[in-house]
């Protein structure tokens, strides 16, 4: 690829290896082709998967574990290893009835992997327009203070 073909001014920065004017091959910093061309499509799909997963959660088709698993795009084997449980047990937790039997210790580990407070394994906070949610950890690592604030922008 020629240097000029790879040049993108905006988007997040990355390094591409290209053919320079003197026919040598070397690195150049450029912008992301995907961010430049398709970032709107990416966010539209993200909104779609959030809406669709929330619908399934509300309808009782999936558990909160399955809901977050879809959102962060993690495989069953990967998630089970991070939580320290078998895949069989994880599969039980993906169904609402299996989720009823989950332990606090398992919940805490899931929440750590999903990077959400444990409380969010039982709730999805939907702020009104112009508001935002800020969650503050406490020393015990389980209890969380949830602030609903006016969005600054």
């Amino acid at each position: 690829m020629k240097e000029e073909e790879a040049r993108i001014e905006d988007g997040h920065r990355l390094v591409m290896y290209v053919e320079k004017d003197d026919a040598s091959y070397g690195p150049m910093e450029t912008g992301s082709y995907m961010t430049h061309n398709y970032i709107d499509d990416f966010f539209e799909k993200l909104d779609h998967v959030k809406r669709e997963s929330l619908r399934r959660l509300k309808a009782g088709e999936i558990s909160p574990v399955a809901y977050y698993m879809i959102l962060i795009e993690i495989g069953e084997g990967d998630l089970a290893a991070r939580v320290g449980i078998s895949r069989r047990r994880l599969r039980q937790h993906l169904k609402p009835e299996g989720f009823q039997k989950i332990t606090l210790r398992e919940l805490k580990r899931y929440a750590d992997v999903f990077a959400v407070p444990v409380a969010n394994m039982f709730q999805v906070i939907v702020p009104s327009k112009g508001m935002r949610v800020r969650q503050e950890k406490t020393a015990d690592g389980v209890v969380v203070l949830t602030h609903i604030e006016k969005a600054t922008e």
Partner: peptide, 14 residues
């Protein structure tokens, strides 16, 4: 580095 590492590998071969 683009092209699934093949551009970078071309630079190595050069």
């Amino acid at each position: 580095g683009g092209g699934g590492f093949r551009f970078l590998y071309a630079s190595f071969l050069q």
